[in-house]
């Protein structure tokens, strides 16, 4: 194995990019999920739901900027290829994120008659952004295949990802709220659980179809045994969520966090499964990590920055979550 710096450095950046995107999907995932649940709640609950994500959403979205930033900075050759292929969904996602981001402020600062409009924009933006993200993921996995199979697969993920975000959002609300809203969040989680689980299984089953290379990677011996823990843990996490949301006492007894944590676990496992399937390509079947990377000199310059600032970013992100630990309070500037 080649362990030279020039060989390792792109791998390090691949890891940073992957972690940033994973952090994005989990962190912005819960706040997009809360946005998707918004129409189901009454007015006071809407305020509480948004208060529970208010201090976080900006920093959450910054992980997307970092993920795309690393793609842009470290792998410019892949960046152009991927973003041109995903031109339309990217634009739709951005418009969704715009609507949602401004609705946070406009819904409380604009004249009150407009509040229902901005609530709807908040929901609509969340929906647009999360379906577009699902579509992008699907299209990426198929290697930008525009045949019926590829499109069908992309559509499948475009529907699954929002469902997964909803579960994550419900898990977040169970942790951050109490009373009636918490009960409703449990109810929402219960409702979305099976469709999401079924969709996830269907997608996993379809992945080898759209991307034959995956078959060798997963179903050879001994790989198939070594990889067994991934689907098994996923199933375990799924049933853990199910247990909590179907046992009314579980949340009261303080096990509500399990819903969020287990869903995050599913995301993490799916992420590593996917990463394993794709590696070492960065654009499936077309470009490897090393082909896509810029020169070692410039990467080293960025690496120094990453090595110094990423730990700091993690520290103050944790600090921020600690400051706002506990149940959400009404958002106020004072």
């Amino acid at each position: 194995m080649d362990t030279s710096w020039a060989h390792l450095l792109p791998l390090i950046f691949l890891a940073v990019m992957g972690l940033a995107l994973l952090a994005y999907v989990v962190l912005d995932g819960y706040d997009l999920g809360v946005g998707l649940l918004l129409p189901l709640a009454d007015d006071a609950q809407k305020d509480t739901m948004i208060a529970s994500i208010g201090p976080f959403w900006d920093a959450n979205e910054t992980w997307l900027v970092l993920g795309v930033g690393v793609l842009l900075v470290a792998f410019p050759f892949a960046h152009g290829l991927v973003l041109q292929a995903l031109y339309l969904p990217v634009a739709l996602m951005l418009i969704g994120l715009i609507l949602r981001g401004v609705a946070f402020d406009f819904r409380v600062k604009a004249p009150p008659v407009w509040k229902p409009f901005w609530n709807r924009a908040f929901f609509g933006g969340s929906l647009l952004a999360s379906t577009a993200q699902g579509w992008m993921l699907g299209s990426y996995i198929t290697g930008f295949d525009n045949g019926p199979l590829g499109l069908g697969f992309s559509l499948g993920i475009a529907l699954t990802l929002p469902a997964a975000y909803v579960l994550l959002g419900a898990g977040w609300l169970i942790m951050k709220t109490g009373g009636v809203l918490q009960e409703r969040a449990v109810h929402w989680a219960r409702r979305v659980l099976w469709p999401m689980g079924a969709a996830l299984v269907a997608i996993s089953a379809a992945t080898p179809l759209v991307n034959p290379a995956v078959v060798d990677k997963w179903f050879g011996v001994p790989e198939v045994f070594a990889l067994m823990p991934i689907p098994l843990s996923c199933a375990l996490a799924f049933f853990a969520v199910r247990w909590v949301v179907t046992h009314p006492g579980a949340v009261k007894a303080g096990h509500g966090w399990v819903v969020f944590a287990a869903t995050v676990l599913i995301f993490v496992l799916a992420f590593f499964g996917l990463a394993y399937s794709i590696f070492p390509d960065i654009v499936i079947g077309r470009m490897t990590v090393w082909e896509a990377a810029i020169g070692t000199g410039s990467l080293t310059v960025v690496f120094i920055g990453v090595a110094i600032t990423l730990p700091m970013i993690i520290v103050y992100t944790i600090y921020m979550y600690r400051v706002f630990w506990g149940k959400a309070r009404a958002l106020s500037y004072s």
Binding site: T62, V65, L66, G69, V70, L72, V73, A74, P76, I294, S298, V301, V302, G305, V306, T309, L310, I313
Partner: peptide
């Protein structure tokens, strides 16, 4: 790349 990267970080 590095200049944009430092802005984000």
């Amino acid at each position: 790349g590095p200049l944009l990267g430092y802005e984000v970080l």
